[in-house]
């Protein structure tokens, strides 16, 4: 059950997408998200989806990985779909069951919002699946560093994110181990009503929090022991540099924009 969380989990293979500069990928994801919102009608989701599939293919990500990133969102997806379906009003009736009227507009908005959500989530998960957490935050820090002029703590933010991301797999592993240990004592995490299940989480959450705090303490100590004192004057091990792939990537998103915008104009 713990293995379902894809967000923040790096999928380590070598691919053209993996090799892109993290800054490129972050900017691209932003542009991609805007593109998703710019899509004027259902039909135009096809080029966006194609773009996504192309990126996933180039990144050598199995389809199942993308599906898995949607799994935690499934409830939100269903709610979005159902709410839009039944609470929109319009002009063209498609179906009427008793007091319920299904409008064509309702169906269209429901589909639009659901596709939008799916494309947004899978798109962002491609970023985290193809970029190691350290590289990702490196990219973020570099992108945000101009903001240091207005006292924005770019380095501290990046460090916090690196640490948080770094510990996600550790915590998952830890949770897995604790679940097993409590299961061995007859704990039951999977059956019962909501209250029973919530209560069943206590034997998992208490040890997990304790170990997280212990780790945080240890880490702070270890960082201080190695004289960490913030970003001022710190040099980097890996210098970021743009390459030819990055140029191609930017061009590709331009093409996507051209396609979407051209239909908007028409």
């Amino acid at each position: 059950m713990m293995r379902d969380i894809t967000l923040g989990q790096y999928y380590p293979v070598d691919s053209p997408i993996h090799r892109l500069d993290p800054r490129t990928k972050i900017i691209l994801i932003f542009l991609y998200i805007i593109a998703v919102f710019l899509v004027p009608n259902l039909l135009m989701y096809i080029p966006v989806a194609a773009y996504l599939v192309l990126a996933a293919g180039l990144a050598k990500l199995p389809f199942s990985m993308l599906l898995r990133s949607l799994k935690p969102m499934r409830i939100l997806l269903i709610i979005t779909f159902v709410l839009n379906l039944f609470f929109a009003t319009g002009t063209k009736k498609l179906l009427q069951i008793g007091g319920f009227v299904l409008w064509q507009e309702g169906l269209l908005t429901a589909l639009t919002f659901s596709f939008r959500l799916i494309l947004l989530v899978t798109g962002s998960s491609i970023l985290t699946l193809t970029t190691s957490p350290v590289t990702l935050t490196d990219g973020l820090e570099r992108l945000a560093s101009p903001l240091k002029v207005i006292k924005f703590p770019a380095h501290e933010m990046a460090m916090m994110m690196t640490i948080a991301l770094r510990f996600i797999p550790t915590l998952i592993e830890e949770a897995d181990k604790i679940i097993k240990a409590q299961t061995a004592r007859g704990a039951d995490f999977e059956t019962g009503n909501l209250m029973a299940r919530a209560r069943a989480m206590i034997p998992l959450l208490v040890p997990l929090f304790i170990s997280a705090f212990r780790r945080a303490g240890d880490l702070a100590m270890a960082m201080e022991a190695r004289c960490y004192r913030g970003g001022e004057g710190r040099t980097r091990l890996h210098k970021l540099a743009y390459g030819r792939g990055d140029l191609l990537a930017f061009l590709s998103i331009l093409v996507l924009y051209a396609v979407i915008l051209s239909t908007r104009m028409l």
């Binding site: 830890e174 181990k177 604790i178 097993k180 240990a181 409590q182 299961t183 061995a184 004592r185 007859g186 704990a187 206590i202 034997p203 998992l204 208490v206 040890p207 304790i210 170990s211």
Partner: peptide
């Protein structure tokens, strides 16, 4: 089965969670 075959994990102290020793041992 799990009550018949008891498993004590590596570093089992990391699985303690109750307020008191008594309650923790009584969990199983």
């Amino acid at each position: 089965l799990r009550f018949k075959v008891g498993l004590v994990f590596q570093y089992p102290e990391h699985q303690l969670f109750e307020e008191t020793v008594y309650k923790d041992i009584a969990f199983g």
